[in-house]
Design a protein around this nucleic acid. Structure first.
Lengths: 201, 201, 201, 201
DNA sequence: AATGAATGAGACTTCATTCAT
DNA sequence: TATGAATGAAGTCTCATTCAT
């Protein structure tokens, strides 16, 4: 047996365990909130003993940071994949990608809240995820303005405004506020319409 | 001394105590979050003993509900006072009124988070506050559309979109995301401009 | 009821509780050692709940420091009371006072050990207690040398040597080493004899 | 390969492993104390896995006993080597040999403490080591008295007194009490002087 | 009505020991 | 034989809630 193979197998096992624990933690944190979640329940969901959990993450807080990091990575990969050329495509993808699944929205709410109380979470969620999304949006808007498709509005403000709208919709959804009677597609189309053409007659 | 007078005086004193405790609770909850806040600290801030606190609120959770109720009342009073005739005025007031003070934003974040975890908080915050704001906005938009000032967009969606944008801005602000280099007035003007005239060239 | 009386009664009750807990802690620490002692057992010995214990001492370590402080105070009071004029009296009192009771010896062993591992304990035990004993002994020896009763040996070394001997005897006793077949009085007399007259023929 | 040779080789390997583990344990125990020392750290210092450690010592306590036994053996070998003919030589060697190195003093403190809490440690440390030293000292003193060099004091008490003094000096040193301003040689000479000639003028 | 000491359930975390590989 | 991941008992500490004064 080669050294590298042995090492790799062990590393794979460790990585799998960590992933398994992070998944369980994400589940429990997103449903109960960080403080109400117990390491006991996380261990149960991951189907390991509580002691085992602490072999992989030294503290409960590290578990939260691990979930935040994984979430930020996912978001980063996601925005890199947004390829729509037109504004309609871009906005639709931004609105859909992040918040389609309930778990995504719950994690978003979790980090929205915990970022204010924990510096590490703030770093991963706000710096790594949120700032990237905003920067990417701003770049796209600048290009659209330069190409003459859009009016010369302040792209920094427009990008933040779009992020704010999307985050706000996610929050409304999560709070159980019914949004329109139509399909998600109609919602996307209506929002895009207002963003593009404005409300003025 | 008449019975009723005595009763009234007692009731006033009780109401004052409750208000004093709710104010302290709002302060501590909004800074520490519900779970990390302790009844000990709330009592200290209210300058009463912990025992007294529990004479007025049976559980810590009731305190949270009380704060949510007071917050909803405040919001209700606030939207009743929005009098702006033009769209610009309406949007400006909505953006400014709720979230100008840090305490307001922090409470907003608190209830945004806790509404998902507690049915009573959800009732007061979402039903009493959020739905009212949205309904009022929707009414106003309908009027503006009927009067021909605005295009015939779906007023339900537009109202929710505006609430979402405002909530999202509050969250971004609370997360420390820098929003534009200009003044709050410029931000308000820019947002209004995009909402009114759209982004398309 | 006067303010001062009320306050005093409360303070007395608090002081009594603290003393009760310190006594229990001294008992358990001296028998089990600091690490093996549990807050559960200390609370049981003090006949209060574990929660109550932590209302008076924030951490287990503070409890140890409290015991050390009380012990140092006791030692300080004790050395102040050593009044023997002659060398024989002084040595006899030093040997007897500190270590006659088992609890005293056990605490001595505890702090001897824990002083190396905890700065606060070191401060109270070594600085407050040990250094005082040595300094007082040194002063007395200097006086005896000046008065011509004793030879001009280095009083600093002689004082430390006497302390070392006494501490060593306490340790031997605590370890169950049988010391002489005679009475404690004979031991004291023999040790004094050797210190005074030396071993040389 | 002969059976006996194989067995012997294995036994040698086992003995070497045990020695390696005991050395690591002595190091960690003497620095951290028994309770705060972890089997994990001992294994790391010995450069083996925790599982291996438990293949050689069934419990952590057995490790402590092993260290005590090794320490007692070393002390026994040491006292056998004390060859000084005169009292000065004997006292000097006793004071120097055991406690010159910090590791020695720390182990001394460890066993001084743990002997009271563990019967096996007590057996090895007190019975094997301490009693032998005292017995050897007593023998020597008896010889010196018989030969007329020393006064006819009780040799049992004198031997215990000398052990006590030496142990006490080791403790004072370990506690950071400064002992005289001079060299260790001066200290040894002064102590010997007092022991031989006494303090009386 | 106000107080705050007492309570005890339950949280996070540590670590000696086991055991499958 | 060596490994180290898994275990779970046990420890310290927190805090909402109760209740005698």
């Amino acid at each position: 047996m080669l050294e590298t193979e042995t090492t790799t197998r062990r590393e794979r096992r460790i990585a799998a365990r960590k992933a398994q624990l992070l998944e369980a933690a994400a589940h429990v944190f997103s449903h109960k909130g960080y403080e109400k979640a117990t390491t006991k329940e996380i261990a149960e969901v991951a189907d390991v003993s509580e002691g085992t959990l602490f072999n992989y993450f030294a503290t409960k807080r590290e578990l939260l940071i691990g979930v935040a990091k994984a979430y930020a990575d996912e978001v980063a990969a996601d925005i890199a994949s947004v390829q729509g050329e037109t504004f309609e495509d871009m906005l639709a993808q931004l609105m859909a990608n992040r918040f389609r699944r309930g778990q995504e929205r719950r994690l978003f709410m979790l980090f929205l809240y915990e970022s204010r109380l924990n510096a590490d979470v703030h770093e991963y969620y706000v710096q790594e995820a949120l700032h990237r999304i905003i920067a990417a949006t701003e770049q796209r808007l600048t290009a659209l303005i330069d190409s003459g498709v859009m009016r010369p509005v302040d792209p920094a403000i427009a990008a933040r405004m779009m992020s704010a709208t999307i985050m706000g919709f996610a929050a409304l959804f999560e709070l159980g506020v019914s949004i329109g009677t139509g399909s998600p597609e109609k919602l996307g189309a209506d929002v895009t319409d207002i963003y593009l053409n404005g409300l003025r007659n």
